[in-house]
């Protein structure tokens, strides 16, 4: 561990205050733009931005009419990214998403030509993803992880950057197909979209005709996006924080010695190493969002619920006792100390 740290020290330099300030300015422009489209959801907007900066996919869960789709559309407008929307339905086929080969008659000869599907975009909105069959849902697996699709033995690269922003409705579950664990694990964040306050509702009613948001223009160019991604990668992750992330993810496993009692009792399967990677990446983005050149414990705690919540598989008894994944992650964050060694009782830190 210390060798790795030494190597990291030698190769990595800290972002300069100017770089951090520049990044903060760019992020601020994006947040301001989103704020004009989506009112009264500052925390949601910051989480979405963090997920995008970490180059992660996002699953938005909330009741209809809360602005999930509008949020994604606003993002694509502000970032100037290619945007496609797919409304997932039970009869949707994988070919409808990734594309399919079509027999074409060219100069008297017939050959199969691959026609790209809507997945070939920078920003894919998979609306009501849980209404499609598992077969169709699985079409996104390779795309989300490898950022490429393979059709009839041919692999096609997806445009960079590539984000999948999916939405799902927590009610009306009749005729839906819950996302399998493998699919869920590929979403960096799962964000629960909650309702807004009455003041915000009043603003929406009084300032917008038919609730339509104002037209948004591009605030970040593609190059600026790439620069932001590089700056996020340059955020320093201290050894102690990395250790904290590792212990936090390890504590989600019921067999782990670090797991609190409730976790051992109610969690059936814990989070994967992919979760730890996502936690570190999004914590970096969160640090840059707050204008820091490094990750602290607070950033890890901030993104823990969004990263780990959908990755925990709880036991049936957890439902009986009223434990939800979010509550379990909050318990884990409380239970796992920042430093792996208990502070002696004879000193007051």
């Amino acid at each position: 561990m210390s060798d790795i740290a030494t190597e990291q020290q030698a190769t990595q330099r800290l972002l300069s205050p100017d770089e951090v300030e520049r990044a903060r300015g760019m992020i601020g422009k994006l947040l301001d733009g989103l704020g004009t489209a989506i009112l009264g959801q500052q925390e949601l907007l910051e989480l979405v931005t963090i997920c995008l900066l970490a180059r992660g996919h996002m699953l938005l869960e909330g009741l209809p009419g809360l602005g999930k789709t509008e949020l994604v559309k606003s993002l694509s407008a502000l970032l100037g990214l290619g945007f496609r929307r797919v409304q997932f339905t039970p009869d949707l086929l994988p070919g409808d998403i990734v594309g399919s080969p079509i027999l074409q008659d060219t100069d008297g000869s017939r050959k199969l030509v691959f026609h790209k599907g809507p997945i070939f975009a920078n920003l894919l909105l998979a609306d009501e993803i849980n209404r499609a069959t598992p077969k169709t849902q699985s079409a996104l697996l390779e795309a989300m992880q490898e950022r490429s699709v393979t059709v009839m033995g041919e692999t096609h690269e997806l445009p960079r950057p590539f984000f999948v922003l999916a939405t799902q409705n927590p009610i009306e579950l009749e005729g839906t197909y819950p996302l399998p664990e493998a699919q869920l694990d590929r979403f960096t964040f799962k964000i629960n979209v909650h309702g807004v306050s009455s003041d915000t509702l009043q603003q929406i009613i009084s300032k917008r005709r038919h609730g339509q948001p104002p037209a948004l223009s591009e605030v970040l160019s593609h190059e600026e996006m790439e620069q932001l991604f590089d700056l996020v990668d340059g955020v320093h992750l201290p050894e102690a924080v990395a250790n904290y992330i590792a212990r936090l993810v390890n504590a989600t496993h019921p067999d782990s010695a670090d797991a609190p009692e409730e976790c051992s009792k109610y969690v059936r399967y814990g989070a994967s190493p992919r979760a730890a990677i996502a936690l570190a990446g999004t914590a970096r983005a969160a640090a840059l969002l707050t204008g820091k050149p490094n990750v602290g414990f607070d950033e890890v705690r901030r993104v823990a619920v969004s990263v780990l919540g959908h990755r925990l598989v709880l036991d049936y008894s957890a439902r009986l006792e009223g434990w939800t994944p979010v509550r379990m992650v909050e318990r884990l964050v409380d239970a796992v100390p920042e430093v792996g060694r208990p502070v002696p009782q004879d000193v007051e830190v």
Binding site: A5, Q8, Q9, Q12, R13, L14, S16, P17, H236, P238, E239, A240, V241, A287, K292, P293, N294, V295, G296, F297, D298, E299, E338, V339, G340, R341, V343, V349
Partner: peptide, 26 residues
């Protein structure tokens, strides 16, 4: 570990840990 605890007590937000691992005058 001591640096991590001191960082928290100071409210440095991880900067003390970072500077201990990668010193930066700025």
């Amino acid at each position: 570990e001591s640096v991590a605890l001191l960082d928290r007590s100071l409210g440095a937000g991880g900067l003390l840990m970072t500077l201990t691992e990668a010193p930066d005058e700025d």
